[in-house]
Design a protein around this nucleic acid. Sequence first.
DNA 1: ATAACTGTAATTATTTTTGTTACAGTACAA
DNA 2: TTGTACTGTAACAAAAATAATTACAGTTAT
Lengths: 136, 136
Amino acid sequence: MNSGRFAISVHILTLLTFSEEEWTSSEYLAGSININPVLVRKELSNLRERGLVSSKEGKSGGSKLARNAEKIFMSEVYEAVKQKDLLGKGINSPNPDCPVGRKINDHLDSLYDEAEKTLLTSLGKVSLAEFCRKFD
Amino acid sequence: MNSGRFAISVHILTLLTFSEEEWTSSEYLAGSININPVLVRKELSNLRERGLVSSKEGKSGGSKLARNAEKIFMSEVYEAVKQKDLLGKGINSPNPDCPVGRKINDHLDSLYDEAEKTLLTSLGKVSLAEFCRKFD
DNA sequence: ATAACTGTAATTATTTTTGTTACAGTACAA
DNA sequence: TTGTACTGTAACAAAAATAATTACAGTTAT
């Protein structure tokens, strides 16, 4: 998975949690994260698709959480951000003439699925609100 | 973590399991995985440091498992291969003037540690031998 | 109308990952 | 003792993935 994006998304969501009810600009978010505002907007766009934030265009626009931080879980952020699979599902092109090469991707896939399930369970136990409480 | 390397390492170990007792050359391994032999040797070097394989130089040299496949676990492969942390521990340089930016890396770290612990538990339940039985 | 935003495409720069070449070192075997 | 078949690594090159930047059209409050 893309490690940096998870951190960015959590950072965004944390900032939004601390200013719930306000529309926060991507410029402001980018300032705290210390990355480019366009990257933030891309990440917001992704989080929006997943129903985690909502945004308002135009003057005094910005973004905020789409629902209460108690009801947003780290597993959702993980899933929002992931594109590739955890450990690199089927990325190689092993030699099909080799009995191992021919079947290894399938077997790796099931291993990954199992591992990822466990990871999601673990991340699913942590809400955004809980995460944010650590900052107090 | 580096996804491709996990697959490569598991592939190597699987091939070595199927030819236990023989010294298998990096050339042969590279052929099944369909990657460059030097990459295989680099991966072998890493697995060797971790005590998972041993190698023999010189003519008719090669590599083999350092211990029985029943006693090698996927969690070990994961740990052998990982350098960066699972979800990108502290890769950003958030703004230290922001109360969230100042502390978020620490909090992300503990989140990651917890998640990774779970992942390792899951991978620790699968031995190399068990994985290889799927090929029969 | 203007100012302060978002949304997104297109481009470039940077970093990471992967592959390649090259060659020294080791061990077996004739 | 010399050739052959390997490993081990360094150094470099190529390719792919990430991140940053520029640019600009669209939206909304005032």
